[in-house]
Simulated assay, not measured.
Amino acid sequence: MTTAEEGHAGVWDQVKLGKIYISGGHDYWGRQGAGRLQNGIRDVEEVECVAGKGLVGDRYFGYRQDFKGQVTFFEEEVVEEIRAHFKLPKLPASVFRRNLIVSGVRLGEWLGKRFVFQGIEFEGSQECRPCHWMDRVVEDGTERFMKEGFRGGLRAKVISGGLLRVRV
């Protein structure tokens, strides 16, 4: 497990949580060939993490045992890259439908590792795979752009519970 106390992981002390997004339903999942649903996404200041289940109020909460995507992390720096690349300076980070928008860390480094963030233990389980919907909600070419360089984000399991709070 990676923690700030071990010295080599002090990076998590430098990580900022800029946004927390949760949604009670899926907009895209299972919708190939059909239109998007409109479940919306809520921007919240804090969220409860429950071990083995995910984020209270989110569509993947308690989805299934040992689910790899109980929570998703996304780099603010990637949001900025996409805004610049596609010349969309006001593109909201919520459009990517990831839960936690963080800055100050390269999430690919935490794939397959346990880490502690804001006192809560997570396990980086899988890269978030961008899909064709990214081309629809941002611009053509976004899916391909996000597939390069671990830009899709990190799916993680919640190992220990607690409360996450926005801290910029």
Rank of each mutant, 00 (worst) to 15 (best):
P92C: 07
G54P: 02
G153I: 02
A156Y: 00
R114I: 01
A84G: 13
W110M: 08
H132K: 14
E148C: 08
R144M: 01
L163W: 11
V166D: 13
R114Y: 02
F150M: 10
K68G: 05
G161A: 07
E48N: 05
V102D: 15
Y21I: 01
G7Y: 14
E80I: 07
F86M: 09
N39M: 02
V79D: 11
E6P: 05
K147Q: 08
V168I: 13
R59V: 00
L55I: 01
Y63H: 12
R114G: 10
W110A: 12
E81I: 09
A9M: 12
R106G: 13
S160W: 04
G24A: 04
N39H: 14
P89W: 08
I20P: 13
S125I: 00
R36L: 08
R165Q: 14
L17I: 13
I22N: 02
F73Y: 05
R129S: 11
E6A: 13
K53R: 11
S23F: 00
H8K: 09
V15A: 14
W110G: 04
G162P: 13
S23G: 10
E148Y: 11
I41F: 03
V50S: 04
R31L: 04
E76A: 13
W133L: 08
E6C: 10
G25L: 00
L111P: 06
G10K: 15
Y60W: 02
L154P: 07
A156F: 01
R165W: 03
R97V: 04
E127K: 12
V158P: 05
G62L: 00
G33K: 02
I82D: 07
G30N: 09
F122W: 01
E75R: 12
R106V: 13
T72V: 03
M134N: 11
A51Y: 01
G40F: 04
D66P: 02
L107G: 08
K90I: 03
M134L: 14
I41E: 10
V116N: 09
F117Q: 08
F61W: 00
K19N: 15
M146L: 14
G104M: 14
Q118E: 06
M134W: 08
E5F: 14
V11A: 11
V11I: 15
K68M: 04
E109N: 12
G152N: 07
V138S: 09
G152K: 06
R97L: 05
F122N: 04
Q32A: 14
R83Y: 05
G112A: 05
Y63G: 00
F86N: 12
K68E: 13
G104K: 10
W12Q: 12
F67R: 02
S103T: 15
F122C: 04
R144T: 03
